[in-house]
């Protein structure tokens, strides 16, 4: 069990969670962020990293992925800590008044304040319709690659035809003992450079490509050992393997947040616009996850919400003391170690 103590625990490392670290840092508060994605950035990293955004004040045009890179640079002086690739499943208040957040992989984060910046919800994998898929989750079936070393010298089968399936198939040829890529159709529509790289690796026999095919059965005891692949909707072949990695992208689902006793309206947390506090003292909600009259799901609105939220967080952490208001032009950035 990993335990982290911090001032503000932030659920969700999308743009609003990230910017909260900056505003909290200006007030001398430390933050720990948790996200189920293996990387920071929320929707910007998962759904549209290569799309340009035009409505960030003062920046006429920026790729979503670059905005996240810049936010990471901007918050670096404040040394936030991260738990990535883990989902917060439990939130409870302890006798000492602190909150305790618990993840699906037994990490525990303790803090006086919780900021929920969960966006449209927890990103969960699209799962192919294979009967006993769930039985092998974490014992042969992975939907997200957190640490490629796990696949060193193993036999890996990836299914999917998008960029992440292509990119991981390419990457894992350097690590795994055998890489098979299974795709429902014949052609790929991913980034052209990834497609041609995959085709080169197929020619070099480093990737075994099976197209017009779908995995339709998983076989094993405590761990997955074989899969059945249906090709052209007729012939079925069997293949031995160590890991099956279906990569069909992720979809956001409100998930565990709905069970934390907060007032929810249409999949969003109701907040007071004074400071984006929820009905539970010490828990705030900012960004796409909250709702209030006139709410707009925009990054710039989430940045504003984050800024006001940390003022109240400061008062809770420092038992009623008001934060002093200063311009960054006056104080500069004093980092936190």
């Amino acid at each position: 069990m990993k335990i982290f103590n911090t001032d503000i625990a932030i659920v969700g490392a999308g743009p609003c969670g990230l910017f909260s670290v900056f505003e909290a840092g200006l007030l001398g508060l430390k933050c720990h962020l948790i996200d189920s994605l293996p990387v920071a950035g929320g929707q910007l990293s998962e759904i549209y990293p290569k799309k340009p955004i035009y409505d960030i004040p003062g920046i006429p045009e920026i790729l979503a992925g670059d905005l996240i890179k810049n936010l990471m640079l901007q918050i670096a002086p404040f040394n936030p800590s991260f738990t990535l690739g883990e989902t917060v499943i439990g939130l409870s208040k302890k006798e000492d008044g602190k909150f305790e957040l618990e993840t699906n992989q037994n990490s525990v984060i303790r803090s006086k304040v919780v900021a929920i910046a969960g966006g449209l919800g927890n990103f969960e994998p699209r799962k192919p319709q294979i009967e006993n898929l769930i039985q092998y989750e974490n014992c042969g079936v992975d939907y997200i690659i957190k640490d490629p070393e796990k696949y060193r010298n193993k036999k890996v089968v990836i299914s999917g035809g998008g960029d992440s399936a292509l990119d991981w198939a390419i990457y894992l040829t350097e690590v795994a003992n055998q890489v098979t890529l299974i795709h429902r159709r014949t052609g790929f529509r991913g980034a052209p450079e990834s497609v041609s790289k995959v085709m080169r690796l197929v020619q070099q026999k480093k990737i075994d490509l099976i197209t017009n095919a779908e995995v339709n059965k998983l076989i094993g005891n405590s761990h997955l050992t074989n899969i059945e692949i249906k090709i052209d909707n007729s012939e079925t072949i069997s293949k031995s393997l160590d890991f099956f990695i279906p990569l069909f992208g992720l979809v956001p689902k409100l998930g565990p947040i709905a069970t934390w006793g907060l007032n929810i309206d249409k999949q969003a947390i109701e907040v007071n616009t004074l400071d984006y506090s929820t009905n539970s003292k010490g828990i705030f909600a900012i960004g796409d996850i909250n709702t209030y009259p006139g709410k707009l799901k925009l990054i710039l609105c989430g940045f504003h919400e984050a800024t006001l939220m940390v003022q109240s967080a400061y008062r809770i952490i420092h038992e009623g003391k008001d934060p002093s208001f200063k311009y960054t032009t006056v104080t500069g950035i004093k980092g936190i170690n």
């Binding site: 699209r126 192919p128 319709q129 998008g162 069909f248």
Partner: peptide, 8 residues
């Protein structure tokens, strides 16, 4: 088409 490739 590439989105449909990824959907269930």
């Amino acid at each position: 088409l590439s989105m449909l490739d990824n959907l269930m």
